[in-house]
């Protein structure tokens, strides 16, 4: 499947791009699976997403937890805890 991935703040800097489309194996069912898959690709993703305690995720522009399901039609965003206001 092909998923749209979006990155912000220092996660964007570590990945080295603000967005990308990616083909994913069928066993990626949840946000948690997706992070594990990305971290297995290379150390760039590992450095950006490996510490799950500081990674926040939105699916289709809504905050979600790690157990949230993902499908190939989704836009999935990764970012550190937000600091607006």
């Amino acid at each position: 499947m092909t998923m749209q991935l979006v990155y912000f703040s220092w996660i964007r800097e570590r990945v080295g791009k603000s967005e990308e489309s990616m083909q994913l194996p069928g066993d990626v069912k949840t946000v948690d699976d997706l992070i594990d898959h990305l971290c297995s690709i290379n150390e760039v993703y590992q450095a950006a997403l490996g510490n799950k305690s500081v990674v926040r995720v939105a699916v289709n522009q809504t905050h979600v937890n790690l157990d949230h399901p993902v499908t190939d039609a989704d836009e999935v965003a990764f970012f550190p805890p937000v600091t607006g206001g």
């Binding site: 912000f8 703040s9 939105a58 905050h63 965003a77 970012f79 550190p80 805890p81 937000v82 600091t83 607006g84 206001g85």
Partner: peptide, 8 residues
């Protein structure tokens, strides 16, 4: 807003 709006 401070803990939900996606600003960095």
């Amino acid at each position: 807003l401070k803990s939900r709006a996606p600003f960095w």
